[in-house]
Amino acid sequence: MGVITLTTDLGHRDFYQAALKGSIISQLPEVRLVDITHEIPSFDIQRAAVVLRNAFHYFPDGTVHLIGIDTVFQEGAHYTMMKFEDHFFVGADNGIFSIILGDKTAQELFEIDIMQDLRYLHFPLADILTKAACHIAKGGALSEIGQPIERPLKKVMIQPLVDNNTIKGHVSYIDSFGNVISNISKELFNDVQLGRGFKLHFKRNETISRLSWHYNEVPEGEKLCLFGISNFLEIAINKGHASRLLGLHQDEIIMIEFLDTPRR
């Protein structure tokens, strides 16, 4: 039984999500469908990539991840299938594959070669992309429905600016708890810190100078920073909504200043 996950910007108000699922079940009745999220802001491939990169490896190898972001019909559109870390990804070649890959390489990469059904002209997600996802979920080879390509459309997430004593990053994601997730990875932080103390600066002249291991390490209502499940630096408030209470929103600048004193 194949597993297909869904990551889309379709929301829950309209019929689009139901039509997508109906199309998949009609082709593969025994499929196991899993919603990752349908609440990605419209056309926001960077937000979708953040969610997928943090979720996909919890699924078994061979899972097919169907990406429904920016898939509306347009002349000259390209649709891509990718095998990466023994998972499969299917979606529009709009840059999201290059963001998911980062500096890594796909195991297989194909442009989908499936005829558009004119009945679904404005909804290729429920036509071309579901056919590809179901084909893969049934064990079909990518080469049977596509042509190999060397690389996907290239788009790069904004990277932190680094020197010997500072890392300047930005807010890349805010989760449903209000935790503010940056684009500063644990690996980068450790590489620059080198055992030194630090101050994390952000909006309203707020600072944090200590890493926590978990959210309950500080009293309720107090702010903290930690490397959470995503392995990127988070700003949070214990049992509070950090984004709202600290005035931190998508793309806000944050800065880490490393001090000459040893870390505490």
Rank of each mutant, 00 (worst) to 15 (best):
D163H: 07
D163K: 04
N165G: 03
T166L: 01
I167S: 05
K168A: 09
G169N: 11
G169E: 05
G169I: 03
H170V: 13
Y173T: 01
D175L: 11
D175A: 12
D175H: 12
S176P: 00
G178Y: 08
V180G: 06
V180F: 03
I181S: 11
S182H: 10
N183G: 06
K186W: 02
L188E: 13
N190F: 12
V192L: 08
V192G: 07
L194A: 10
G195Q: 09
G197T: 01
L200C: 05
H201G: 02
H201K: 13
F202S: 03
F202D: 04
K203N: 14
K203R: 15
N205M: 14
E206V: 09
E206L: 15
T207K: 06
T207Q: 12
T207V: 13
T207C: 04
I208Q: 02
R210I: 04
L211G: 04
W213H: 11
W213I: 15
Y215E: 01
E217C: 04
E217R: 09
E217V: 06
V218L: 08
V218G: 04
V218N: 03
P219C: 12
G221S: 07
G221P: 10
E222H: 14
C225L: 10
C225D: 03
C225G: 00
C225M: 14
L226N: 05
L226F: 13
L226V: 01
F227I: 00
G228H: 01
G228K: 00
G228L: 02
S230M: 12
S230R: 12
F232Q: 09
F232C: 12
F232L: 14
L233M: 10
E234F: 08
I235V: 13
